[in-house]
Amino acid sequence: MSRRLALTLAFALAASPVAAEEVVVFAAASMKNALDDLAAQWQAETGNQVVISYAGSGKLAQQIVAGAPADIFVSAAPNWMDEVQKAGLVVAGMREDLLGNTLVLIAHGKDAAPVEIGAGFDLSALLGDGKLAMAMVDSVPAGQYGKAALTALGQWDKVEPAVAQSDNVRAALALVSTGEAPYGIVYATDAAADDNVTVVGTFPADSYPAIVYPAALLTGAADAADKAFYEALSGEAARAAFTAQGFTILK
């Protein structure tokens, strides 16, 4: 090979663009606004691609355990992350409690009167003949937290027949946003993301378990971009994106 040809090949290789890497994230539906913002910024900075699947944490955990090709998992509750970890799918030392949240009662529109949620609170009277939108109370963290709060307040048995359960918390939010249900139980961050609902009350912090969002790098992660985006979840840009949506930063 001539020296000129060798130099030409060297320059061509140096000028070739580095192939973009893809990061597949499974994340709780309540994270959509903040995580979409963060992913867009990170993609612009790195040239890599982030593909995010949003759903209820229980459904996502089950899909991961069944072999779904995810690189990172962010759950809205530790119990579903525990299931993924028990299956041996979390990289050792690559799990952390990332965020916190608050549980609120929302109403359709902007004219709903505020209520005091505590002793003597009668949610069934407030609902009347209407429905209470909630995420699935047996498998979705927002629904599990909500059921725990209503049980602690002595309201669950009274309102259970009126509960309209949805696949995830954003679907429950949509029921209230469109007026299909007059009230719903969601996270404070969900309420902040929809102008068609109003927070009419906040559930006492001692009425439900602390809301914790653990994040983990999974054993299916195969390239440097996966680890880089996992680390970016606790970086400065992420803190700004999460706090802007009302999350509490735990790390």
Rank of each mutant, 00 (worst) to 15 (best):
L13G: 06
L13E: 04
A14R: 03
A14Y: 10
A14D: 02
A15S: 09
A15L: 15
A15R: 04
S16K: 03
P17H: 11
P17D: 10
V18G: 09
V18A: 15
V18D: 03
A19D: 01
A19W: 11
A19N: 07
A19V: 12
A20V: 07
E21P: 06
E22P: 00
E22G: 01
E22H: 11
E22W: 14
V23N: 14
V23D: 15
V23I: 13
V23R: 15
V24E: 09
V25T: 07
V25C: 12
V25N: 09
V25R: 08
F26R: 04
F26D: 05
A27Y: 13
A27G: 07
A27H: 12
A28I: 04
A28K: 00
A28R: 01
A28D: 14
A28T: 05
A28M: 08
S30V: 10
S30C: 09
M31Q: 08
M31H: 01
M31A: 09
K32P: 00
K32Y: 05
N33G: 07
A34M: 12
A34Q: 12
L35N: 10
L35W: 13
L35D: 14
L35P: 05
D36E: 15
D37W: 12
D37K: 11
D37F: 05
L38T: 00
L38N: 00
A39T: 06
A39F: 12
A40R: 05
A40I: 11
Q41E: 14
W42P: 00
W42D: 02
W42G: 00
W42C: 02
Q43P: 00
Q43V: 03
Q43G: 03
A44Q: 15
A44V: 01
E45V: 03
E45F: 06
T46K: 02
T46H: 02
N48M: 09
N48L: 07
N48C: 06
N48F: 01
Q49M: 08
Q49G: 01
V50K: 00
V51A: 13
V51S: 12
V51H: 10
V51F: 06
I52N: 05
S53W: 02
S53T: 10
S53C: 02
A55D: 15
A55S: 13
G56V: 10
G56S: 07
G56A: 11
S57I: 09
S57A: 09
S57L: 12
S57E: 14
G58T: 09
K59P: 01
K59Y: 15
L60D: 11
A61C: 09
Q62T: 08
Q63Y: 06
Q63I: 02
Q63T: 02
I64M: 12
V65G: 01
V65N: 06
V65K: 14
A66E: 15
A66I: 03
A66L: 14
A66V: 04
A66N: 13
G67F: 03
G67R: 10
G67E: 13
A68D: 06
A68W: 14
P69T: 08
P69L: 10
A70E: 05
D71Y: 11
D71I: 09
D71L: 07
I72Q: 04
I72V: 10
I72T: 02
I72D: 02
F73T: 00
V74I: 15
V74Q: 08
S75A: 12
A76D: 09
A76R: 04
A76C: 07
A77D: 10
A77R: 07
P78G: 10
P78L: 14
N79K: 11
N79Q: 14
